[in-house]
Design a protein around this nucleic acid. Structure first.
Lengths: 236, 236
DNA sequence: CAGTGGTCTAGACCACTGA
DNA sequence: CAGTGGTCTAGACCACTGA
C-alpha cells in the first residue's frame, strides 16, 4: 500500500477544490456515495473528509451534507525565530552580550507590567544578539517571576540567550507576535552601531502558559540585515 | 455525548505534555494499554493519537512506540492581510488609488520576472491603499498573464484593489511572505506623504498555484500606522 | 521475529437539522 | 421525520523496525 486510500480520496478532492472544478458552495457526494465510488468502508471515507474539514477546505452539516468552504481569509505559518540556531544556520558565530538585568516590581501605572507580574516581581533583561560579533538585534525582556520561579537560580540564562533558555525550560501554549517598523532612538542606534533614526524591524511577543503570562519581549532588528519569512503550503 | 471520547483522550495527553508531566522523549502507553485504560476500541485511541501527531506533540515509530516530541521550533499563524476588509473593520473608509498599470515583457536580466512570466507577459500595477483618504501602503504588483488570462478583461481590478480581485478569482496553493524594515526612498515618501527616509514595513509576497507562479507583490506600509500580528494557540 | 503502529472493514446507534 | 454526519465497536491483516 504505497498511498493509503484515505489519502488518495483526500488529495482527489483537494485538487478538485483548488483547481476550481468544485467551487465554493458546491456539494460533495455523501459518504455512502463515496464508499461505493471508492469501494471502501465508511470509516475510510470519513478519515479523508475529516482531514479536509480540519484543513478548512470543506464545511459539513448534518442532514444537509458536505460543501466546499467559502474562501476564507488565508493565513500563513510564521516561524518563531530562535536567534542562536538561526544565526548558526547561516554559518555565523552567535553571541549574546548582556547589557544588564535586575529584579524589580512592576511599574504601578503600566498595565502591561502589572498583568505580567500578577502580584509577583519582574525579572528584567537587556542584551544584544551578535552575529560574527556584529549587533543584529537589541532585546528587552520581562519575565514573570511567579510564572518562572527557577529564574533566580538560572546562572546560565545569559550564557545561552534568554529566549533559548525560556524555550527550553518553560513550555508555553499561546503567544502573540506583533511586527512593525520604526526608527531607532539615539540610544538604540548606539547599541546596535547603526546611524540614528535607521529603520528597524520591531518584533514584540507576549507568551502565555494556559492563562498565566510568562514573558514579554521586544526585539529590535537592524533593518537591512534581517527578514522574517512566513509560508503557506497545501497540507502535506 | 457532550465530549467525544477521542477528544477527551487527546486533551488528557495534550495537558500532560504541555504541563511538563510528560517530558520530551517520554514514552506514552501503547494503544492496547490505552484501550484498556479508557475502555474503548483501538480506532478511538488511534483517532486521539493521530490528532496529537498532526499537532506535532508526539512522534510515533512502529515497533518502538509513541513518544513526546522534542520541543520544535515553534511556529505561528500569520493572517494574510486583505487590506480593504482590514481597514473597514477598523471603521475607516477604504480606497485604492491607481498610479498606473501596463502590459510588458519581463526584463531579460531579472530572474524573478522571467520565472514569473514563464514565456508570457507581465501585468504591472502600482497604486496606493488609502484609509480615510490617507495613504497607508504603496503597492507594486506583477501578475503572470499566462497564469491569469482573465486579467486583460478585468476592468474592475483597480476598483476593488488588485489583491482582493486576485483572491476572489485565482485560487492559490502556496505562498511565501517576507517581512523587513526599510527606509522610504524620495519617490516612495512623496507618494505616501511621509518624510524622506521614514521607516516603513515592507511585505513581499510570492504566490503559486501548484507549480505555476501567479503574482509578486511588494507592499510598503507607513511605519507607525500598521502592525502585522501573528498568533500561536493550542489546537482548538 | 515479535511488538507496535497504519490502515481498513462492516457494521452500529445516535444527534442534529433541514426538507 | 428522514437523511446526513459524528462517533464508536471489535475485529483483521500488514509493514516496519528495533530488541
Amino acid at each position: 500500500m504505497r498511498q493509503p486510500l484515505h489519502e488518495r480520496i483526500r488529495s482527489d478532492f483537494e485538487a478538485r477544490i483548488l483547481s476550481g472544478e468544485l467551487a465554493p458552495g458546491d456539494r460533495l457526494p455523501i459518504e455512502q456515495e463515496l464508499m461505493q465510488h471508492y469501494g471502501c468502508a465508511r470509516m475510510t471515507v470519513n478519515k479523508a473528509l475529516s482531514a479536509l474539514l480540519s484543513a478548512g477546505l470543506i464545511d459539513r452539516r448534518k442532514r444537509a451534507g458536505t460543501f466546499v468552504a467559502r474562501p476564507r481569509m488565508h493565513s500563513m505559518v510564521l516561524d518563531v525565530p530562535d536567534l542562536p540556531s538561526q544565526i548558526r544556520e547561516r554559518g555565523q558565530a552567535y553571541a549574546y552580550e548582556p547589557i544588564g538585568h535586575r529584579l524589580r516590581p512592576p511599574a504601578p501605572g503600566r498595565d502591561e507590567e502589572v498583568q505580567l507580574a500578577d502580584d509577583g516581581d519582574l525579572f528584567e533583561l537587556e542584551g544584544l544578539h551578535l552575529a560574527d560579533g556584529i549587533p543584529l538585534a537589541l532585546e528587552y525582556r520581562l519575565i514573570s517571576v511567579l510564572a518562572v520561579p527557577d529564574i533566580g537560580d538560572a546562572t546560565d540564562i545569559e550564557a545561552i540567550s534568554p529566549g533559548s533558555w525560556l524555550l527550553k525550560h518553560v513550555p508555553w501554549t499561546e503567544a502573540e507576535t506583533r511586527i512593525s517598523a520604526l526608527e531607532a532612538t539615539t540610544e538604540e542606534a548606539r547599541l546596535l552601531r547603526i546611524p540614528q533614526r535607521s529603520a528597524c524591524l520591531c518584533v514584540e511577543r507576549r507568551t502565555w502558559r494556559s492563562s498565566d503570562r510568562i514573558t514579554y519581549v521586544r526585539q529590535l532588528f537592524v533593518g537591512n540585515s534581517y527578514d522574517l519569512v512566513a509560508r503557506f503550503g497545501a497540507t502535506r
